[in-house]
Computed example of a mutant assay.
Amino acid sequence: MEIVMENPVTLAWLGDAIYNLKVRETILASGKCRPDVLQKTAAKYNSAVGQAKVLDALLERDLLNEDEKEIVRRGRNAHVKSPAKNADLKTYLKATGLEALFGYLSLYHHEERMEELLTICMDLGETL
């Protein structure tokens, strides 16, 4: 495994932006254009609950390699100071783990793998 020195919360901060951008691109590509529909649809994907469900599906289907599972584990074990208002701590930390994964993949230049997993996540998100 690569030596990853970044705090998992820092990785999650970056991963949140990457995930959010992919969600927005996916929603726009689906042809939705009314602002209220865009926001409601994005919230479904970007909520801690939605991200936790996507992570659970990735893990259940064994779609992550060992390095990726380790980053997710670090994200889930992170010490957060302000958890989400609309999710319990366990759910919030799962979402943090998913976001940390995408922060890691981006920061360590695993772009192809990041795109592969983002596509899978968007497909899973459509089922939420």
Rank of each mutant, 00 (worst) to 15 (best):
Met1Ser: 12
Glu2Tyr: 00
Pro8His: 02
Val9Lys: 15
Ala12Met: 03
Leu14His: 00
Gly15Met: 00
Gly15Ile: 01
Gly15Thr: 02
Asp16Trp: 01
Asp16Ile: 00
Asp16Arg: 04
Tyr19Gly: 00
Asn20Arg: 09
Leu21Ser: 13
Val23Trp: 01
Arg24Thr: 00
Arg24Asn: 08
Glu25Ser: 06
Thr26Gln: 11
Ile27Gln: 03
Leu28Gly: 08
Ala29Gln: 04
Gly31Asn: 06
Cys33Val: 05
Cys33Ile: 13
Arg34Glu: 15
Arg34Leu: 15
Arg34Tyr: 15
Arg34Ala: 14
Pro35Cys: 06
Pro35Arg: 12
Asp36Glu: 11
Asp36Gly: 05
Val37Ala: 12
Lys40Thr: 01
Thr41Gln: 11
Thr41Pro: 08
Thr41Arg: 02
Ala43Asp: 10
Ala43Lys: 10
Ala43Met: 08
Ala43Pro: 00
Lys44Arg: 15
Lys44Cys: 13
Lys44Trp: 06
Tyr45Asp: 06
Asn46Leu: 10
Asn46Thr: 13
Ser47Leu: 06
Ser47Met: 06
Ala48Cys: 07
Gly50Phe: 00
Gln51Asp: 09
Val54Ile: 15
Val54Ser: 08
Leu55His: 14
Leu55Asp: 11
Leu55Arg: 14
Asp56His: 15
Ala57Gly: 05
Leu58Glu: 01
Leu58His: 03
Leu58Val: 05
Glu60Asp: 12
Arg61Ala: 15
Arg61Asp: 14
Asp62Arg: 12
Asp62Lys: 11
Asn65Arg: 12
Asn65Cys: 12
Asn65Thr: 05
Asp67Ile: 11
Asp67Asn: 14
Glu68Lys: 11
Lys69Leu: 14
Val72Cys: 09
Arg73Met: 08
Arg73Pro: 00
Arg74Ile: 06
Gly75Leu: 05
Gly75Pro: 04
Arg76Ser: 14
Asn77His: 03
Ala78Phe: 10
Ala78Gln: 05
Ala78Arg: 08
His79Ser: 09
His79Gln: 13
Val80Trp: 15
Lys81Val: 09
Lys81Tyr: 11
Ser82Glu: 13
Ser82Val: 10
Ser82Arg: 15
Pro83Glu: 01
Asn86Tyr: 15
Leu89Asn: 08
Lys90Pro: 02
Lys90Leu: 09
Lys90Gly: 07
Lys90His: 08
Thr91Ser: 14
Leu93His: 12
Lys94Met: 02
Ala95Met: 08
Leu98Lys: 03
Glu99Arg: 12
Glu99Thr: 01
Leu101Val: 02
Leu101His: 02
Gly103Asp: 08
Tyr104Phe: 15
Leu105Met: 10
Ser106Leu: 08
Ser106His: 07
Leu107Val: 04
Tyr108Glu: 02
Tyr108Ala: 04
Tyr108Gly: 02
His109Val: 14
His109Ala: 13
Glu111Ile: 02
Glu111Phe: 00
Glu111Tyr: 00
Glu112Val: 11
Met114Gln: 07
Met114Ala: 08
Glu116Thr: 14
Leu117Arg: 00
Leu118Ala: 00
Thr119Gln: 10
Cys121Lys: 03
Cys121Arg: 04
Cys121Thr: 03
Asp123Val: 01
Leu124Cys: 07
Leu128Gln: 09
Leu128Glu: 02
Leu128Cys: 05
